[in-house]
Design a protein around this nucleic acid. Structure first.
Lengths: 108, 108
DNA sequence: TTTATATGTCGATATATCACGATATAAATT
DNA sequence: AATTTATATCGTGATATATCGACATATAAA
């Protein structure tokens, strides 16, 4: 989903694009486990298993969340042996999370 | 809506709360029309109809989006005659939108 | 009062998302 | 080779969300 077919328009309604892209990424971020993972990854490098444990979910589900966030360009995966480390690549996430935590507080 | 049946756990996994609340609000924000409305409301005071027109949607749908955002505490409604003006009340939205626009650009 | 305008609500439907079990792959261990 | 460990993928049912038409309300104008 989410084919950016770029605006056929130029009415006054302005470009939907910026807002649509933003909405898609925000939607991906807008999940408690994914927020927690980003929070952790801003502070270190973790494997799928470690992130899963911190969220209290099975690792195959963490894997799925990480895949979604990768798809948004938030992070990349670095494999080491049979482990997979995830690392943030989107610099704006730090600011964004700072705003979010300023409003809602950090997880423990 | 949204019964949080949350897993029966309370190990070291920390408070789910901050992240869950944040997720819920972010999810509400994560919609192209709602983002645009917030973007506009950061710069002025608009009626449902004006916001609807800017988004290119019927006003009864704008009304629904505004109701959701009100429920999150983003804004309040001020009625004047038969018009309804919406006004932001959540100060963190300015920062949050600034982050978002820094990453994705503003709508026209 | 009648009509038009602005907003809001309700119910139906289509689509998306979530959480899960089962299964798959791939590397390390035995 | 067989087993265990770590991750990833697939299919499914349950739930949530988005959008819409129809209708409701409330104010203003005629």
């Amino acid at each position: 989903m989410s084919k950016k077919s770029i605006p056929p328009k130029s009415i006054a309604h302005s470009t939907p694009d910026a807002m649509e892209q933003a909405a898609e990424c925000l939607k991906t971020l807008a999940h408690p486990h994914r927020l927690r993972m980003v929070h952790m990854l801003l502070r270190g490098r973790y494997t799928v298993g470690e992130l899963a444990q911190a969220c209290g979910i099975p690792s195959h589900m963490a894997s799925e969340h990480l895949r979604l966030m990768q798809r948004c360009g938030f992070m990349i995966c670095e494999k080491e042996g049979r482990k997979a480390y995830y690392k943030l690549t989107e610099s704006h996430l730090a600011n964004l999370m700072a705003c979010i935590e300023a409003r809602f507080g950090s997880p423990v």
